[in-house]
Amino acid sequence: MALRLSRAVPIWRNICSVSVRAMSQTGQWGEGAGKGGGSGGAVRDAGGTFGKKQAAQEEQYFKKLQAEQLKKLKESVHDEIKYHKDQIEDHEEAIERHQKKLKDLAELEK
C-alpha cells in the first residue's frame, strides 16, 4: 500500500523543486546537535568553527542550487513564450491565406 501512495505524488514536484532551509531559534548553524546545526554528521555534531564552516558551505550550496533551478525555470518560460508567439504568427499567416482564398472564390462567383 505504501508504494501505491508514493506513486500518487505528482511528478512535477521532482522537476521544479526549490529547497528552503530554516534556522532554529536556539542557536546558530553548525553549533552542534540540537542547536540549529542538527545531526548532520560528526563535524556538525561537534560544533565549533568546522561545524559553522560546513553549515555555511551547505547554505551556499543550496542557494546556488535554488538559483540554478530558478534560472532553468525562467528559461523554460521564455522558451514557451517564444513557441506560442511563433504559433501565433503561423496561425495569422494561415488566416491570411484562407481569407485570400475566400476572396478569390468570391470573385469567381461573380
Score class of each variant (00 low, 15 high):
L3I: 14
R4C: 14
R4E: 15
A8E: 07
V9R: 04
P10W: 07
P10Y: 04
I11A: 05
R13T: 11
N14P: 00
N14I: 02
S17C: 05
S19Y: 12
V20H: 04
V20K: 05
R21Q: 13
M23R: 00
M23Q: 12
Q25D: 14
G27Q: 09
Q28T: 13
W29R: 02
G32K: 00
G34P: 05
K35L: 14
G36K: 07
G37N: 07
S39H: 01
G40T: 12
G41I: 08
V43W: 01
R44N: 14
D45Q: 09
K52T: 08
K53N: 11
Q54L: 14
Q57H: 07
Q57C: 13
Q60A: 15
Q60D: 14
F62L: 00
K63C: 06
K64Q: 07
K64I: 13
A67L: 00
E68Y: 08
Q69T: 06
L70Q: 11
L70M: 00
L70S: 07
K71F: 15
L73Y: 10
K74S: 15
E75F: 09
E80N: 05
E80V: 06
K82F: 15
H84T: 13
D86Y: 12
Q87I: 13
I88M: 00
I88N: 03
H91T: 07
I95C: 03
R97N: 01
H98Y: 08
L102Q: 10
L102E: 02
K103F: 15
D104F: 10
E107S: 01
L108I: 03
E109R: 02
